Amino acid sequence: MDQVSLANGLLHCVVALRGAELRSLADAGGEEYLWQRDPAVWEDSAPILFPVVGRLKDGGYRHAGKRYELPIHGFARHCRFAVRETQADSVLLELQSTPATLACYPFAFTLTVRFTLEKNCLRVVYNVHNTGAENMYFSLGSHPGFRLPQDGGASWRLLFSESPQQVRQLDGPLLGAASRPYSLGPGNSLPLSPGLFDDDALIFTQMHARHVALARADGATRLVLDTGGAPDLGIWSRPGASYICIEPWHGYDDSAAVSGELRDKPGIVELAAGATFSTHYAITVHPST
């Protein structure tokens, strides 16, 4: 078995065991809301970012006097998760540390991800449990990409429940050193205009907006993402592509100014031995749009 399907009469979704990646989210009429992977454009659909979000300076970090290397967004998206519980409308997947993960990330952990359909909403709940004997340092992010139907040349925008005040962007492969003021349009709207991502993602740190809606220019809402209160948010697409990623994060890319010590990394989560970190996000779809 390579994937799990869930349904509740209003929604149907598919989750791959590789990376616990959401691959499809469709309504009862068959309308697909998730980007359907295209290697020529973007080969993913909704990867889980763990134990880092984005890139590390020089590709690695230091902990307890030793240097380790991790790829962009960490390793969870490449790992096969085990099925721990399954029902018609819910599944619990689990990833545990292994000798392979400990070689590049020296912390014992269990990461669980529960997908649950609740009427016209998909809720995704994460639990990171520190099973080791020392404090654990990590970042955790969601990276769902949403399909943008081009029927009639419709234009799209994001509507924020609160306006972010600052934005950061990449400077080469790493995060730029400074944030800059950022103002949304009327109604806290961000039009998904050509050229918006010419300089890569928009990264909002210290986020206050809990909800981000994807809507047509006429105001009709297609879906609403609940960030779960994540402190950081990435907005990204490849220029000209027909999808938009709305990404709740706990942590973000390194800048050139970081020390390289994992415990000092800006945005890092510190978890005591034996403790559990919990967070979630949710997607509510509006089938009429």
Score class of each variant (00 low, 15 high):
153 G>N: 14
105 Y>T: 01
214 L>I: 11
189 S>I: 10
37 R>P: 04
243 Y>N: 11
178 A>S: 13
24 S>A: 04
76 A>D: 02
168 R>F: 03
188 N>W: 05
155 S>F: 05
222 R>P: 00
218 D>N: 07
100 A>K: 07
174 L>W: 05
154 A>G: 14
227 T>Y: 09
52 V>S: 04
114 R>Q: 15
173 P>A: 01
58 D>F: 05
90 S>L: 12
252 Y>T: 14
265 K>V: 10
14 V>P: 01
186 P>D: 05
45 S>I: 09
234 G>S: 05
107 F>C: 05
199 D>F: 14
207 M>H: 07
192 L>D: 03
210 R>C: 00
125 V>H: 07
246 I>V: 15
237 S>M: 03
249 W>D: 02
70 L>N: 08
240 G>N: 06
164 P>F: 08
82 A>T: 09
16 A>I: 00
227 T>L: 10
127 N>K: 15
54 G>F: 04
167 V>L: 13
253 D>V: 09
163 S>L: 01
87 Q>M: 12
92 L>M: 08
25 L>G: 00
58 D>L: 12
71 P>L: 13
26 A>G: 03
107 F>E: 06
188 N>H: 12
102 L>S: 04
119 K>D: 10
29 G>W: 07
61 Y>N: 12
240 G>K: 06
138 F>P: 01
37 R>Y: 02
7 A>N: 12
282 A>Q: 07
36 Q>E: 11
127 N>I: 03
54 G>C: 06
125 V>R: 06
167 V>W: 11
158 L>Q: 07
35 W>D: 04
87 Q>P: 01
226 D>S: 03
141 G>V: 07
69 E>F: 15
240 G>V: 11
136 M>V: 06
275 A>Y: 06
109 F>H: 04
77 R>W: 13
9 G>I: 07
205 T>I: 02
77 R>Q: 15
74 G>P: 11
215 A>D: 02
276 T>K: 00
197 F>I: 09
74 G>C: 12
119 K>T: 11
148 L>M: 06
27 D>C: 11
139 S>W: 04
75 F>I: 13
277 F>P: 02
99 P>L: 12
70 L>E: 10
255 S>G: 14
101 T>K: 14
115 F>N: 01
19 G>Y: 07
145 G>N: 03
75 F>R: 07
127 N>R: 15
24 S>Y: 02
